[in-house]
């Protein structure tokens, strides 16, 4: 049998590590302006939020219905979702890369990064 203090120190250490990691992520994510929208791990769209002058709204279809995404200068959010839990809507606006917006039912992740994740759209041919 270990002493209770052993367990308290162990748990406190894990909590401290998590806290440091959270702060580090916050610092690292500052200044990111390019919103990469991933579905099923594939970047389906990249938007440079710093270059937006007006609000851009578009929808993403997923197994749990439609997510409506709203992007404007410097920030992005899911404004409407057809899934029951609405967590992604409640996550609100994101203006830095500290943490992504996630819609688990639709396997959708919106992440602010420093570079556009090269969207590889399905293309049959190229004109020009």
């Amino acid at each position: 049998m270990k002493k209770t203090s052993f367990w308290v120190i162990l748990i406190a250490a894990v909590a401290l590590l998590a806290g440091v990691a959270a702060v580090w992520l916050q610092i690292r994510g500052a200044g990111a302006t390019i919103a990469n929208i991933y579905q099923d791990g594939v970047c389906i769209r990249s938007i440079d939020l710093s270059s937006l002058t007006e609000t851009v709204t578009f929808t993403v279809e997923g197994p749990a219905g439609t997510n409506t995404i709203e992007a404007e200068h410097g920030r992005i959010r899911v404004s409407h979702a057809e899934c029951p839990d609405q967590v992604c809507v409640e996550m609100g606006w994101r203006s830095d890369g500290a943490s992504p917006i996630v819609c688990l039912p639709n396997k959708l992740v919106i992440r602010l990064e420093n570079t556009a994740a090269s969207a590889t759209p399905e293309i049959d041919g190229v004109t020009g």
């Binding site: 909590a15 806290g19 990691a21 992520l25």
Partner: peptide
């Protein structure tokens, strides 16, 4: 989701979990 980036939620999740 196929997105390892989600791991950035782990610290926050961990704190709330504790």
């Amino acid at each position: 989701t196929g997105t390892p980036a989600i791991a950035s939620y782990f610290p926050v999740l961990l704190l709330s979990g504790i």
